[in-house]
């Protein structure tokens, strides 16, 4: 029994570690903190139809919301949010598989499966270079949850137009600017997207900090000032993202960059100082303690020695 538990322990530890590693290395994990699940998705989300009258009426209904974010280089990140209806409110469903699909005019292609995290979110990143647009010129995606013993199946879809945002970091003397150019492909080549609101975020431990915003001009350009007093990681790196949220039929459009513009924070774990609250006592305390102890125990030793002499003398 015990050895079995031990075995489970090791294998469990290893898998958790592997899983964490994969999650951590996946570029889709752009922000350490996912947007809170209770928030209605701001993205182009498709609500699942109400579950049809099934023969097992006691199943709970579920809801899948699919949103997209376009990155430079025809990369799209799909994000499925799976929730279940309980007591009048929608609660995130973790630990369930979500399948992602590319929808063509005639057929559909399975892209992959991802298990939802604690907040019911499954993310999947895909290159759409080779992907064909549908008859209306859209990229069409779907996310599906097959249901389980307790939950109804559900799905969500998203149809978006291609767009891209180019980010150019500019550092001059003491000022930093983020130059952005937003365009959408068209038969005439790249056409600028004007009047789009862009927000620049920096990734922080919890959530993302908004550091600047702006609106694109006729040319699809916008320059946004970037603060110079931010703290970065141990190398001073800042993980910067510019986002246009849920814009017209483009979904989210985003661009990211990593720049060493921040103040480096030491990641070193150094010994805590000698103090009352650390594991290391102040020197005077150690000295006093041992001097006192040595003095008393030293006298005890002398007394014991004298006693042994006494015994010898008899």
């Amino acid at each position: 029994m015990v050895s079995k538990i031990n075995q489970l322990l090791t294998s469990f530890g290893k898998t958790v570690f592997a899983l964490l590693l994969i999650l951590w290395l996946t570029p889709s994990n752009l922000f350490a903190q996912d947007p809170p699940a209770k928030e209605e998705p701001t993205e182009e989300a498709a609500e699942a139809e109400e579950p049809e009258e099934a023969d097992e009426p006691e199943k709970f209904s579920s809801k899948m919301s699919l949103s997209t974010t376009q990155f430079l280089g025809d990369t799209v990140e799909l994000q499925g949010l799976l929730r279940a209806k309980m007591d009048k409110s929608w609660a995130a469903v973790p630990n369930e598989k979500v399948g992602f699909f590319a929808i063509g005019d005639e057929d559909e292609k399975a892209l992959g499966e991802v298990v939802t995290n604690a907040k019911g979110i499954a993310k999947f990143r895909i290159s759409t270079k080779a992907m064909a647009l549908n008859a209306d010129g859209y990229l069409a995606f779907a996310a599906r949850f097959a249901g389980n013993d307790e939950l109804e199946e559900s799905d969500g879809d998203a149809n978006i137009l291609r767009a891209s945002m180019k980010l150019t970091p500019v550092k001059e003397d003491s000022t930093i600017t983020i130059s952005l150019n937003v365009t959408a492909p068209s038969p005439e080549g790249e056409t600028p997207i004007a009047e789009a609101d862009v927000v620049v975020y920096v990734k922080r431990m919890v959530g993302r900090l908004k550091v600047g915003e702006g609106t694109t001009d006729e040319e699809g350009n916008v320059d946004i000032d970037f603060p110079t007093d931010l703290a970065g990681d141990d190398l001073g790196n800042l993980y910067i993202t510019a986002v246009i949220e849920d814009y017209e039929e483009y979904g989210n459009i985003a661009a990211t960059t990593i720049q060493a513009w921040g103040r480096p924070i030491s990641y070193e774990i150094s010994e805590l100082p000698k103090s009352l609250w650390s594991p290391h006592p102040p020197s005077w305390m150690v000295i006093t303690f041992f001097v006192l102890m040595a003095a008393v125990w030293g006298h005890y030793a002398i007394v014991l020695y004298k006693l042994s002499q006494l015994k010898k003398a008899s």
């Binding site: 002398i302 007394v303 004298k306 006693l307 002499q309 006494l310 015994k311 003398a313 008899s314």
Partner: peptide, 16 residues
């Protein structure tokens, strides 16, 4: 401890 009250013992005990 075998104390017999010899002078040496007395002295040792007293000083201890």
């Amino acid at each position: 401890l075998g104390y017999k009250g010899t002078e040496v013992q007395k002295k040792q005990l007293k000083s201890a």
